[in-house]
Design a protein around this nucleic acid. Sequence first.
DNA 1: GTCTATAAGGAGATAGAC
DNA 2: GTCTATCTCCTTATAGAC
Lengths: 214, 214
Amino acid sequence: MSQSCDREGLARVRMAALERRELLVQAALRVIAREGVAAATTRAVVAEAGMPLASFHYVFHSRDELIADLIRYVVDDEASAARAALSIEGDLPTTIRNGLKAFIDIVAADPLREQAMLELTQYALRTPELSESARIQYESYYRAAAGILEAAAGQLGIEWKRPIPEMARILITFTDGLTLGWLVDRDMAATESVIDFAADALSALAFPKEGGDR
Amino acid sequence: MSQSCDREGLARVRMAALERRELLVQAALRVIAREGVAAATTRAVVAEAGMPLASFHYVFHSRDELIADLIRYVVDDEASAARAALSIEGDLPTTIRNGLKAFIDIVAADPLREQAMLELTQYALRTPELSESARIQYESYYRAAAGILEAAAGQLGIEWKRPIPEMARILITFTDGLTLGWLVDRDMAATESVIDFAADALSALAFPKEGGDR
DNA sequence: GTCTATAAGGAGATAGAC
DNA sequence: GTCTATCTCCTTATAGAC
């Protein structure tokens, strides 16, 4: 009757369950990066994590619950990676160019990971229970982009001609387009040419801040 | 021994086989648009086409052979649709804006179809035997974009500051990014704002043709 | 609490009846 | 030539032994 008394035991169990969830999420991400979303079956995931199959349904109710967790996990990752990539050097076009180049270099360093992100978005859009996850994923991207644009503006003493949310969407439009294009033909020269264009075009949307040219 | 003599019979058979292939390809496209690439099993496709299962392997060696055919089919479709969408009205920024708006309206009119195209690209990139199909798909996009840019330049009496292939890649970078963004949140106002930016930025890459301002 | 063993169903591909 | 019936394998999920 009083099975909920053992607080410490309960806490340890919940910790263990949470740990297992995270281990499975990370294993799933490795499988998806290596072989695609379709290959991330419950069996493949538990094999990757070195767990028995039954452990899966012990901590997740279904495969979709894992995918939802997975999207949350990678979105957090991606956003913090994006923030870390920003480095202000030289003038605005140079900063944008370097930033976009750094981004595409990350993609090129681990193309399968980025392909996995795209596939996850697609999968989420297809699955009614997960379509909200896709929106949250992109809101996180837009927020990260907005943060970067504001930081760049502050440090370079410029202002953007358009509201930050609009600027952020433009930036993400570029990163998405650049990523897709590079993933298909892996032509870095062509990609860099588009980056040059993007840097110039985005720079045209900035003007020097009144009274503050650092 | 002489079973290859009946030319007419052979021709009729091959015609029938080709017809069946096309019927199956179209059925597969409907299934994929409705439920995604993963749902396009051989069974689902033949059910959609109203054929028995065995007919599938009678005209295709494998599911991947169908997918490869499918990509060729939709790419042709897409390219001719793109060419047809071009209409020169007003100045260059207006033409670009209208063109991109027409493109995204096509996407918005049948989002599932465009999602299917994206999924097909992803699937092709994942499947070694099909990765060439993805490249061919994008080469077709770039060629269509190049054709449109050349036609626009000719009719508006302008020249592009960059080589046509570079311009084409920039344009496709925009359409990909716009598509992905719209598919996720379906925010047409935000999308149009990015289109406005794209129109201005691309127009900045044109200058009036010497001696010919029509 | 953990895992083995299995249920229940769907997949691609094919043999063989008509 | 066409299709029914089936083979083999792999999936998610769970029951029940330890």
